[in-house]
Design a protein around this nucleic acid. Sequence first.
DNA 1: TACAACTTTTAGATTAATCTAAATATATTT
DNA 2: AAATATATTTAGATTAATCTAAAAGTTGTA
Lengths: 224, 224
Amino acid sequence: MHKLNFVMTFAEENYLKAIFHLELESQGEVSTNAIAESMETKPSSVTDMVQKLAEKKMLVYKRYKGAQLTEKGRKIAADVIRKHRLWEVFLVEKLNFHWDEVHDIAEQLEHIKSEELINRLDDFLGNPDFDPHGDPIPNEQGVMKRTEKKLLSELKKNQIGICVGVKESSGEFLQYLDKKNISIGTRITVMGKEFFDGSMVIEVQNENFFISKTIADNLYVQTS
Amino acid sequence: MHKLNFVMTFAEENYLKAIFHLELESQGEVSTNAIAESMETKPSSVTDMVQKLAEKKMLVYKRYKGAQLTEKGRKIAADVIRKHRLWEVFLVEKLNFHWDEVHDIAEQLEHIKSEELINRLDDFLGNPDFDPHGDPIPNEQGVMKRTEKKLLSELKKNQIGICVGVKESSGEFLQYLDKKNISIGTRITVMGKEFFDGSMVIEVQNENFFISKTIADNLYVQTS
DNA sequence: TACAACTTTTAGATTAATCTAAATATATTT
DNA sequence: AAATATATTTAGATTAATCTAAAAGTTGTA
Ligand SMILES: [Mn+2]
Ligand SMILES: [Mn+2]
Ligand SMILES: [Mn+2]
Ligand SMILES: [Mn+2]
């Protein structure tokens, strides 16, 4: 049983994580520009790092073609995401943080290196499957639970959905949801849907109100 | 109310912490070599960093004379130590780590930046005054509880002490103590003391055994 | 007091991560 | 197929943290 043969820096881990997320959205290689945008850096910086990660066999890189994670790279990315989400659960469940306050702290905690720590934390939290934003937590093997979920914007008039997650999880969006009393587990009924712009009137806790398509596009629901 | 005006790097925080500890041991300025030794770096690296920290007004530095923390520097050092020790309590109390396993993980966690986090952690742990090794935890203001404690080696024959801390807290030493059933709170009776080399025979939980002066020099006890 | 031993600083390199500006490759239009 | 626009890479700097080797300062002792 051998542990970490190489130590990834914070920067390297952040790149792997970003590429992991981008691969989920778009199949095939991930472009330099896409990485640069998601990480708020310059494309030239991305090229440098991607070349270094390719040398370390964390991803396959072809000049002008983009990057694709190897098994090794994908595992490390999943580990970082596992840590991020477990720490978010800790912050919300144990330290009573609100779901819109935990992301930045988790961005730091996700880089703490200790397998033992994260596995004990996992147990301490009761081996949760999802984080406070409804995102699945990879297990020790890097595998995460898949669920049947759709965007609220996909529902038709009179359909009912249970909120199971958010696509965007910026503070502003989460705070908007709070104001409207929407959180994970909330039952949402589509009372009306505007053909023209996709806006909706929804019912939440016996109250009806209007939401734009942008909102509906960022809320995941489960239908029965 | 303003928060952090400047962000300290991990390296800078580690230097401040090391200097803080060294100032406790020896009054006055702390020498370049002493810092280098305690941080396992080269004196030339220390000079560079100490000059930078002086520019940032974290310490007062006179060439060839050494360094002395300012209030600002001392406060940041105390904060890092506060975080280190609170995380150690968390690891032992909540995640059931053993006291000899937590230091390295705390070395990483002590650099997580969030006042809110550390204050909530403090509450979650019940605002402990001491860490798992018996070291005092600075409060939000950087002040720590002082206790009457002496080294076991200072006790005379037939005196009784309660173990309240360790001076050394390396894994090897802590594991030695475990083998001898000594931990924080253990009652220790000096059954005999060798004039020649300071070694002792002590009684712990109805068992008598021999310890060297080195051991006695690294155990803090409280006498009634 | 003088010099040897030790301590500390300076000079010059190195590595990681980032940037700007310029060069090069690819894609999209005429 | 050019020409133009966009994407990507390379070249060259910069900053932080570290090192080695050499220079400079301090100290303690003969
Ligand atoms: Mn997050
Ligand atoms: Mn999340
Ligand atoms: Mn420690
Ligand atoms: Mn400790």
